[in-house]
């Protein structure tokens, strides 16, 4: 099996004044294509930091990170932006939709960076909304949608450019149990039916149950890689 993500001796430090905080201390991690990985760990253990590195949102202090064959260290921020738009979909805890745009136009956002025509963009956005089961809410603005529905729109947005990798930071952290289960079911579906590789950070053991693998992180190191 090919590895979508390869991290070798990744470290990340933040310097605040004279103080240097070691957030990641030598992460080695390989994620296979088609995996659904849950990452758990106490608050402040570095989960989001690692996820941001894998998603190409930030550069590591040292170490190497290869995602989908691209060595992220070697990409300029402009190249990285382009790479993200083609290869990674992001889902956040607080959905992060643009409140002024309808669901449809939120989903279309990543496609504005492609050469697709207006009609094709609309078509793709509709398809993505259908996959998440919200085709009938295309014209609603985020403010008119429930939290679960907003997260579905966010997932549709992450999907629409058809990336191999979905990176989700506590996607159910702000949702009630039932809604969370729906969202997790949807992620599972994307993993099994659409072949997306998913990395999801969560604090909820039940959420982690939906994943194929669970990783535990503490104080910037990976503890185990359990099946």
């Amino acid at each position: 099996m090919t590895h979508v993500v390869e991290c070798r001796e990744l470290t990340k430090q933040y310097t605040r004044g004279r103080e240097t905080i070691e957030v990641l201390r030598g992460i080695n991690l390989s994620i296979e294509q088609g995996d659904f990985l849950a990452m758990m760990g106490p608050s402040g253990s570095g989960k989001t930091t690692l996820l941001n590195l894998i998603g190409g949102l930030d550069h590591p202090s040292s170490g190497e990170i290869v995602v989908g064959g691209a060595n992220l260290n070697q990409l300029s921020s402009r190249e990285l932006a382009r790479w993200r738009s083609e290869h990674v979909g992001f889902v956040f805890q607080f959905y992060n939709l643009l409140p002024v745009l309808t669901a449809q136009r939120n989903v279309e956002l990543p496609l504005l960076l492609t050469r697709l025509s207006r009609a094709q963009r609309r078509q793709n956005a509709e398809t993505a909304l259908e996959i998440v089961g919200l085709a009938d809410r295309a014209r609603h603005r985020p403010g008119e949608l429930s939290g679960g529905q907003q997260q579905r729109v966010a997932i549709a947005r992450a999907l629409v450019a058809d990336p191999e990798l979905l990176v989700c930071d506590e996607p159910t952290g702000d949702l009630d149990r039932d809604t969370a289960d729906e969202i997790l079911g949807l992620l599972e579906l994307l993993n099994t039916e659409h072949g997306k590789t998913i990395i999801m950070v969560t604090h909820d053991p039940r959420a982690a149950d939906h994943a194929r693998h669970v990783l535990h992180m503490d104080k910037g190191v990976l503890l185990e890689q359990a099946a």
């Binding site: 998603g55 921020s77 993200r84 738009s85 992001f90 992060n96 990543p110 960076l113 947005r157």
Partner: peptide, 14 residues
């Protein structure tokens, strides 16, 4: 600010 960060996340350049 968060929205602009999201746009950047999605691949919009600076």
């Amino acid at each position: 600010v968060p929205e602009l960060a999201v746009l950047k996340t999605l691949g919009f350049t600076d």
